[in-house]
């Protein structure tokens, strides 16, 4: 149980760190990274929750996998958009 708790707290901390990044950082690339850190935090919480029982909860894993897919595609889109935005500033 302590291990689960450790990862839970770690995940929540990561999540809070990501939020803190969103609230303090100005550059768009850093903000994208912050959002990703938030995502990692949530996924860690979810995996930790899945590991509470003897045989891990497959539903949670499925959710995390789906979440990763969503997060990756969203990040790609955000990166492209931020690059376009920066290019505009340069011109």
């Amino acid at each position: 149980m302590t291990q689960v708790l450790f990862y839970l707290i770690l995940g929540v901390c990561l999540w809070a760190l990501g939020l803190y990044g969103l609230l303090r950082l100005k550059e768009s690339i850093r903000r994208i990274i912050s959002v990703n850190i938030m995502g990692s935090g949530v996924f860690m919480v979810m995996v930790a929750l899945a590991a509470r029982s003897e045989d891990p909860d497959p539903v949670m894993h499925a959710l995390v996998v789906t979440g990763l897919v969503v997060a990756i595609s969203a990040t790609a889109f955000a990166l492209r958009l931020s690059v376009a935005d920066v290019q505009e500033d340069d011109q």
């Binding site: 903000r31 959002v35 938030m38 979810m46 955000a78 505009e88």
Partner: peptide, 28 residues
């Protein structure tokens, strides 16, 4: 529109993750 769009995207992603943390807690 890229600037507002990027802001929208970042906030939307952030919001989704706040929501997702809630979902994780509820499921847990």
């Amino acid at each position: 529109a890229y600037g507002p769009a990027l802001n929208y995207l970042l906030l939307s992603l952030g919001a989704s993750l706040v929501y997702l943390l809630g979902v994780a807690l509820a499921y847990g």
